[in-house]
């Protein structure tokens, strides 16, 4: 399997309502993608800056993760390592894959497989 790419984005920790507002900006077209890890915690890709309506929000560049953009066939090949129910398309799913904490987002023609960079080698050894 090919080496993964760094996941470039912003990590945002803020009040859930403030994150909700970022996720669905009224009127304007959305130019970024938000992976909601927790109600108050998200990774936002596709933008270098972000305005969050929370004076104490923590907005930092995220470097912790790498990702593979897998074809649907490639993802089918590793499905058996996933013991939890797969998320609906477009929804972030988080859990162990082959014993390694990972995240997946299923899109129509591909699947994002996201893992901590510190565990990427181990996950590759286990999956491929």
């Amino acid at each position: 399997m090919r080496a993964p790419d760094a996941l470039i984005g912003l990590r945002v920790v803020a009040k859930p309502a403030a994150l909700d507002a970022v996720a669905a900006p009224d009127g304007r077209p959305k130019t970024w993608t938000m992976l909601r890890i927790a109600p108050d915690d998200a990774i936002v890709t596709g933008t270098a800056t972000l305005t969050v309506d929370d004076p104490f929000a923590i907005v930092e560049p995220e470097y912790a993760f790498v990702h593979w953009r897998l074809t649907t066939a490639e993802f089918d090949g590793i499905k058996r390592h996933i013991e939890w129910p797969l998320p609906a398309p477009g929804v972030l799913g988080q859990g162990l894959i082959a014993g390694v904490a990972a995240k997946v987002v299923i899109a129509s023609d591909h699947v994002l497989l996201i893992v901590s960079a510190s565990l990427a080698d181990e996950l590759m050894d286990r999956l491929w």
Binding site: R80, H81, A98, G99, V100, S116, A117, S118, L119, D121, E122, L123, R126
Partner: peptide, 11 residues
């Protein structure tokens, strides 16, 4: 297909 806890690598 069982795995034990992974060990992390630094950059």
């Amino acid at each position: 297909d069982m795995h034990l806890d992974p060990f992390r690598r630094t950059a």
